[in-house]
Design a protein around this nucleic acid. Structure first.
Lengths: 118, 118
DNA sequence: TCAAACTGTGGACTAAGGTCAATTGTTTTC
DNA sequence: GAAAACAATTGACCTTAGTCCACAGTTTGA
């Protein structure tokens, strides 16, 4: 599909898609029409973009995503790829832990406010 | 205490402390010496900075922190403050949920890699 | 067939969250 | 009492993650 359709269907803007592509997060092929240089974006980019959106929301950086893509594309050997992914998972777990701590702190503040309320 | 000591003890750089102060996240008083304009940073800024560090790590923005500080300082009425805090907690919970989803996805990738390994 | 909509390219711009450096004045410390 | 360390202020600079704009060429719907 062309970039417009991908943008439409993924909910990611053209500019952002191009930005991701420039950063090696997604790939496209030259397209079958020789008269233009419109590129073709394979269907699987939909899944990818969906993942990127979720992962960015989870606080991961473009660099993180690049590492993951490279690891999953088998651009390096299996054990290295595995440790890359494991490291990302660990980072996420740590972040989740941190969030839990902050939630606890804020809820404590809420409780204090309520009990001081009476 | 003066900014240098606060920086030292909190592990936050002077520049960052000043940046936070400019953004209304921490407060200082004029200091008791009339000949200089060195400011005094009360002890409780240590707790505050520690919280900021954790909260930033958890993905909260400076604007989020400002909202929380304002709410907790009673700069608005109790019920408003409460709903501000509750909203922040909800945001964090949503983020934690998102992280869980991303972890699940990555772990699935790891499992797939391992089973394809044999 | 012709205007509207789409495409690629390139570069400028933005906002957030700091960080760095220069300058001037004030303490500390040897 | 002089050098080293610290403080305030200002403004420039940096990175990340996009977003916007202008240009020229291409497709497409009426």
């Amino acid at each position: 599909m062309r970039i417009g359709e991908l943008a439409e269907r993924s909910g990611t803007s053209r500019d952002t898609i191009r930005f991701y592509e420039k950063n090696g997060l997604i790939t496209s092929t030259p397209g079958n029409n020789a008269t233009n240089n419109y590129r073709d974006y394979p269907e699987d980019n939909l899944v990818r973009l969906d993942f990127f959106t979720k992962a960015r929301d989870a606080g991961m950086s473009i660099a993180d995503l690049k590492d993951i893509i490279d690891a999953m594309a088998g651009r390096c050997d299996r054990s290295v790829a595995e440790s890359v992914l494991r490291a990302k998972v660990d980072d996420l777990k740590e972040r989740a832990e941190q969030i839990r701590r902050v939630i606890a702190f804020l809820e404590q503040g809420l409780d204090a406010a309520r009990s001081g309320d009476t």
